[in-house]
Design a binder for these strands. Structure first.
Lengths: 146, 146
DNA sequence: GAGTGTTATGTTATAGTATAACTATCCCGA
DNA sequence: TCGGGATAGTTATACTATAACATAACACTC
């Protein structure tokens, strides 16, 4: 039995932990892992636990405000592209992620599965590679990473 | 300094750990996690370590004999569908995974990204949902899970 | 066959990701 | 005021993956 909660008006913030987590993602410019979010919140809330972050992520994802990048175990604020049309282009060099709309193609894939008697509920399309910037930075002799 | 290796002719098996790991996957009929593989190998090799399994998986995947399901953290023997055309249909009810060829659609997604100056190297397309069998088993009142 | 480089493996430890299980609090309505 | 539902805190643990270093096997040359 502790007194922690009595002194933490944890219902006073506008939207609580969801907002804190969302703000970390919003101000980062790139995908962030759950434990990175945790670390960035710790200065303000030293006792925050992974569970709290994961719960906030779950709410935000359900609300369509956040996306999970499966191949990175990381999270990114959502654009207005509908979930069923989203394709991520992930640069393995600089780590940046672009969210693209490929509604037509993903729709065709979905339809083909439906014809095969499968009822899709969630789609994950993630393409790894190198972005234009990183490609441009690897002219011969230029000071690029690899 | 131990004597373990002197008594383990670990190069005597036809192809070593790769084969052991592959056989686990071949005889399972569904995706298996790395640590499940580990557990299934332990009766025969009590001192096997995660590293060994992961290394074998890496070899098998590089050789095109095995696939990783990103959204399940699990592994599955590869069919002869080329990597760049593979789509997984994953039943969240029974856990079974179908590998399908969607070369045309995935190709179109890839091309669109290339036009946007992105150079793709690896594609992940995984669709979650319910397979035909599980759908059929959920007529009203039938004894299905949910 | 001693030296050397490469690859595969073993071994130990730890990093990184995610959830379970239980407790406490707040809000709202009966 | 009591109880139900949602949110949050707390503690512990499960699950996934890799780092780092030591050892052994093989192939090749000299």
């Amino acid at each position: 039995m502790t007194i922690t909660c009595a002194t933490q008006d944890h219902h006073a913030q506008p939207t609580g932990n969801d907002r804190l987590v969302f703000d970390v993602l919003r101000t980062a410019n790139g995908p962030v892992s759950a434990y990175d979010i945790l670390d960035r919140l710790k200065p303000d809330r030293p006792r925050i636990a992974p569970t709290t972050v994961y719960r906030a992520l779950e709410h935000l994802i359900r609300a369509g405000r956040m996306r999970r990048i499966e191949t990175l175990n990381a999270y990114l604020p959502a654009t207005d592209i509908p979930d069923r049309a989203v394709v991520f282009a992930i640069c393995d060099d600089c780590g940046r992620v672009q969210e693209r709309n490929a509604g037509a193609e993903v729709g065709r894939i979905t339809k083909a599965l439906v014809k095969g008697n499968f009822r899709p509920t969630h789609r994950v399309v993630e393409v790894h590679g190198r972005c234009g910037d990183c490609e441009a930075n690897t002219e011969y002799g230029a000071g690029a990473k690899a």
